[in-house]
Design a protein around this nucleic acid. Structure first.
Lengths: 138, 138
DNA sequence: CCTAACTTTTTGACAAAGTCCAAAACTCGG
DNA sequence: CCGAGTTTTGGACTTTGTCAAAAAGTTAGG
């Protein structure tokens, strides 16, 4: 993220210390959970309430500034790399999450054959596996 | 599911009324949640504890008899159609879930370009959209 | 720079989904 | 039918997140 403050102003959102700190935290720690981000923000600006972390993350998500990803068996995670249609690779044992380029191409990168009358707006892909560290452990 | 009892025996699992009823419920109501399944089982055999529903679903999942799917913003759902590598189509507003054939082919049906040293065992695809009923509502 | 209107942040209670544990009940091989 | 080993049950507990109201902060306008 080039300039968190400019980003907020571009979206006509009031600039607050909490929002700036959360944006920086998400930017520097991609795929962190709300809880982890709260800790990072506290080290940065001293304090923030749990609710504010959720508030800020919601506002940023709603404005398309960051993206929320919610893999199974994991609390939600956030990232600021948006609009490039990448997917995720998640470790089943430790939850480590990495970005992977879309295997197919432009969004929507996959088209379902049968769609049951649904209007499809996104194809989410998660690759499940075991990360190098967890492969060694066993 | 042809024969729930035979299925349990094939996996050397003790046959109990709760397991049979949960298996029948999953088979007849694909994509139901644990809570919904508990209700269905209660109508069937009278009573079952919440914990037993979770126990049974775990055992069945661990033995590959049923599959657990966990879309974002929804409790886990279960289905007995396994091994055919199909994916899911989920309505963002009501959670309705439908099966869709794999867009690519055999499992693993997608291969990530960069894999960061991960050993990938599954590519999960969820198509997000709006179901016909929810399209009408708005 | 100061004020007023409007948002945001905070605090604390609450909710949903699921897990942990020990006691009671059950299943199955012999 | 018995006994060993599992499964089921009930209840407390945990995690992740939301609701609501009061306090504090932000921004536009004078």
């Amino acid at each position: 993220m080039r300039d968190p403050e400019a980003t907020l102003r571009q979206h006509e959102l009031p600039v607050t210390a909490q929002r700036l700190a959360v944006l920086r935290a998400v930017s520097r720690h991609p795929h962190a959970t709300a809880d982890a981000l709260a800790e990072i923000v506290r080290e940065d600006i001293g304090a923030i309430s749990r609710q504010s972390v959720y508030n800020v993350l919601s506002v940023l998500t709603d404005n398309g500034i960051i993206r929320r990803i919610q893999p199974a068996d994991s609390p939600a995670r956030y990232e600021d790399r948006i609009g490039d249609n990448h997917h995720h690779l998640v470790c089943r044992s430790c939850g480590r999450t990495e970005d992977v380029c879309c295997a197919v191409g432009e969004a929507p990168c996959l088209t379902a054959h049968t769609h049951h009358g649904f209007k499809i707006d996104e194809a989410e892909v998660i690759y499940w596996g075991t990360c190098p560290a967890c492969q060694k452990k066993r």
